[in-house]
Simulated assay, not measured.
Amino acid sequence: MEREPSLDRGERPAYRIATDADDPAVSVPRAVAAITDCEPTDEEFVLYDVIDPDALGRLFDDRCDGRPRTRGRVVFELRGCRVEVRADGNHVVHGPRPDVEESETVAPESA
């Protein structure tokens, strides 16, 4: 995970998640845990309460004809952090909003 000041949103610092072999359903919770200084095994920290982890992993799989998906993103909140999972693999996590409790979640949206 790398700090990315050019992507900050107001008081929320941005972090780019390394796009390696990890599925976003693994890399996103790890990044959010590191940003919020908690354990990803914490019982209040459940990705499935916000978005289906299996669907998140398959969302940007290659098309039926084998062409890669290069556009689109899904945005959701996890432990107060704004998470953007992007088709191009440049996933971003914004730090928690200062006005939100850590356990609050917001429904996902897609673009």
Score class of each variant (00 low, 15 high):
residue 82 R to M: 08
residue 71 R to I: 07
residue 80 G to F: 04
residue 36 T to Y: 01
residue 12 R to G: 00
residue 4 E to N: 07
residue 14 A to Q: 04
residue 106 V to C: 03
residue 28 V to N: 03
residue 22 D to W: 13
residue 93 V to S: 07
residue 97 R to A: 13
residue 52 D to V: 01
residue 24 P to N: 07
residue 34 A to I: 02
residue 33 A to W: 10
residue 56 L to T: 12
residue 98 P to V: 15
residue 108 P to W: 05
residue 79 R to C: 11
residue 99 D to S: 11
residue 106 V to D: 05
residue 10 G to P: 07
residue 7 L to P: 02
residue 51 I to V: 15
residue 53 P to N: 09
residue 109 E to N: 08
residue 50 V to H: 00
residue 96 P to A: 08
residue 15 Y to P: 06
residue 7 L to Q: 15
residue 33 A to M: 05
residue 86 R to L: 05
residue 26 V to H: 08
residue 82 R to C: 01
residue 16 R to L: 05
residue 91 H to N: 15
residue 43 E to V: 15
residue 67 R to A: 12
residue 38 C to S: 15
residue 84 E to D: 10
residue 46 V to A: 10
residue 7 L to H: 09
residue 108 P to S: 06
residue 24 P to W: 09
residue 97 R to Q: 07
residue 64 C to F: 13
residue 109 E to V: 14
residue 85 V to P: 01
residue 103 S to Y: 10
residue 1 M to C: 10
residue 52 D to Q: 03
residue 107 A to C: 09
residue 48 Y to K: 14
residue 53 P to I: 12
residue 20 D to V: 03
residue 103 S to L: 10
residue 44 E to K: 11
residue 44 E to M: 08
residue 17 I to M: 06
residue 29 P to E: 10
residue 94 H to I: 00
residue 90 N to Q: 13
residue 16 R to F: 02
residue 88 D to G: 08
residue 10 G to A: 12
residue 101 E to Q: 14
residue 97 R to H: 10
residue 100 V to W: 12
residue 8 D to R: 01
residue 42 D to V: 09
residue 70 T to Y: 04
residue 10 G to V: 13
residue 56 L to D: 14
residue 23 D to Y: 02
residue 71 R to T: 15
residue 87 A to D: 07
residue 107 A to T: 10
residue 71 R to A: 11
residue 4 E to K: 11
residue 6 S to T: 04
residue 60 F to V: 06
residue 52 D to E: 07
residue 38 C to Y: 02
residue 51 I to W: 00
residue 78 L to V: 02
residue 30 R to I: 05
residue 22 D to V: 11
residue 23 D to V: 10
residue 38 C to F: 00
residue 16 R to V: 05
residue 33 A to G: 03
residue 31 A to G: 00
residue 28 V to H: 02
residue 62 D to H: 08
residue 42 D to L: 14
residue 74 V to A: 08
residue 72 G to F: 02
residue 40 P to R: 12
residue 69 R to D: 03
residue 70 T to G: 00
residue 11 E to I: 01
residue 34 A to P: 00
residue 99 D to M: 03
residue 111 A to L: 14
residue 13 P to I: 01
residue 9 R to L: 14
residue 12 R to A: 07
residue 46 V to S: 10
residue 41 T to F: 09
residue 70 T to W: 06
residue 90 N to S: 07
residue 82 R to F: 03
residue 36 T to I: 06
residue 1 M to N: 11
residue 45 F to V: 06
residue 18 A to Y: 10
residue 70 T to I: 12
residue 82 R to S: 12
residue 71 R to P: 00
residue 45 F to P: 11
residue 109 E to H: 06
residue 23 D to K: 15
residue 42 D to M: 09
residue 99 D to K: 06
residue 35 I to Q: 02
residue 92 V to I: 06
residue 14 A to I: 01
residue 61 D to M: 03
residue 2 E to L: 09
residue 98 P to T: 15
residue 56 L to A: 07
residue 35 I to H: 03
residue 48 Y to G: 15
residue 61 D to V: 04
residue 6 S to Y: 03
residue 75 V to D: 09
residue 23 D to P: 02
residue 16 R to C: 04
residue 62 D to V: 07
residue 77 E to D: 08
residue 27 S to A: 15
residue 21 A to R: 13
residue 76 F to A: 04
residue 49 D to E: 11
residue 88 D to R: 03
residue 70 T to P: 00
residue 71 R to F: 12
residue 83 V to C: 12
residue 50 V to C: 03
residue 38 C to D: 11
residue 6 S to A: 15
residue 6 S to N: 10
residue 109 E to Y: 10
